[in-house]
Simulated assay, not measured.
Amino acid sequence: MKISWSWASPVIPQPSAAPDLRTTAATGSTARGAAVAIGSFDGLHLGHQALIRHLKQAAKDSDLASVVCSFCPHPRKFFQPLKAPGLILPLRDKLRTLAAAGLDRTHLLRFNAAMASLSPEDFVQLILVKRLNAKLVIVGEDFRFGHKRAGDLNRLTALGLSHGFAVQGVSEIQYGGERVSSSRLRETLLAGELALARQLLGRPYQLSGRVVRGQQLGRELGFPTLNLKMPEDLVASGIFTVWVEGLDRKPLAGVASLGRRPTVESGGRLILEVHVLDWSAQAYDQHVRVSLVERIRPEMRFDNLEDMTQQMHQDLQQARALLKA
């Protein structure tokens, strides 16, 4: 899926570094006004999906463009880079999922010093009114915005009255008696509970990317892999059974390592290495999608390559059994 990009910077007097607004997947004009949903949307779980469904229906009912406004990076990544929560989805997968939701537009706000310094009033005037032409704004009931999180749903509603847009708050979604949230989903992925993650997402947990050349070590050991670079702060890791799309007309079974290869290098970059079962063709530069089905084990450091190879054979046998079940 091809995504187009463009940049626009609202002009504000202070600070000098203005917040940037990136537009992607634009299929409709906001000249008639927009219904705008705001949030980080990391993971695009059931709660996010409920908000987007509400957005699309409200936009249709009021003849408005449906628009999602999100942030990059996550605001907590800006304020506390060492304590910020890990990413559930790489940006490309977040945008791909949003594009598939049938929205008219998706906007990304670069969360930088300029954005962090905006008062609630400036955020509304410069972003929602001037840039997005918002006539309806839809947020979660716990939504906070503006400098030091000074704005909440009540303040946004009051600002809407003075700027000519309505505000609607969407209630939380629960699963298993608990709120569906990005925090809960992160904890689920950290624990390797892929079945629960699939329930919270309403779909398999899927990562995508372009196949790049690796060090060929897997091929030397009898386990050729598709190598996909991942963001360094991705929350998931371990050895997984997977299904791979993009290589054949149907998904192909595989076993994958998502980690930093601690046995063969120190401080390595995060990479998804996928061994496709009973498949040996070249796939460099191809774009593939990998659905993580079940975690076999956490990533481990071995004393030598022989021990690692022996464990890889055990992982492969277990993956075959799990994928047949």
Rank of each mutant, 00 (worst) to 15 (best):
L185S: 08
V170C: 00
G246P: 09
G238I: 06
A253D: 10
S237Y: 04
L189R: 06
A197T: 10
R249E: 14
A236N: 03
V212Y: 01
V212R: 11
V180N: 12
G218Y: 02
V170L: 01
L196A: 13
I239R: 04
F223Y: 15
F223A: 03
L201W: 08
G259P: 12
S183A: 14
R210D: 10
S208N: 10
Q215Y: 01
A195T: 13
R179Q: 13
G202R: 06
R249L: 12
Y175G: 12
E172Y: 04
R213E: 13
T188V: 13
R219L: 05
P262G: 01
L221N: 02
S257H: 12
G192D: 06
L247H: 08
L190E: 14
L190Q: 14
T263C: 07
E245Y: 14
W243S: 12
A191W: 04
S183W: 01
V212W: 06
V244I: 12
P231G: 04
V244W: 01
T241Q: 07
R249T: 13
D248G: 00
G169P: 09
G259A: 11
P251G: 03
L234S: 08
G214A: 07
A256I: 08
P262R: 02
V235R: 04
G176N: 00
G254R: 04
F240R: 07
E187G: 14
G169A: 15
S171G: 14
Q174T: 14
G214R: 09
E178W: 04
T241P: 09
Q174E: 14
L201E: 05
G246S: 05
F240K: 08
R249S: 15
G254F: 09
L190S: 11
R261S: 10
N227E: 09
Q215A: 13
E220P: 00
L201N: 05
R260S: 08
L252E: 04
V170G: 00
S208H: 07
E193W: 03
G218C: 05
L201G: 08
L190D: 05
Q174V: 03
N227G: 07
R210Q: 13
S181M: 10
A191V: 01
L228P: 06
R249C: 06
D248C: 12
E220F: 05
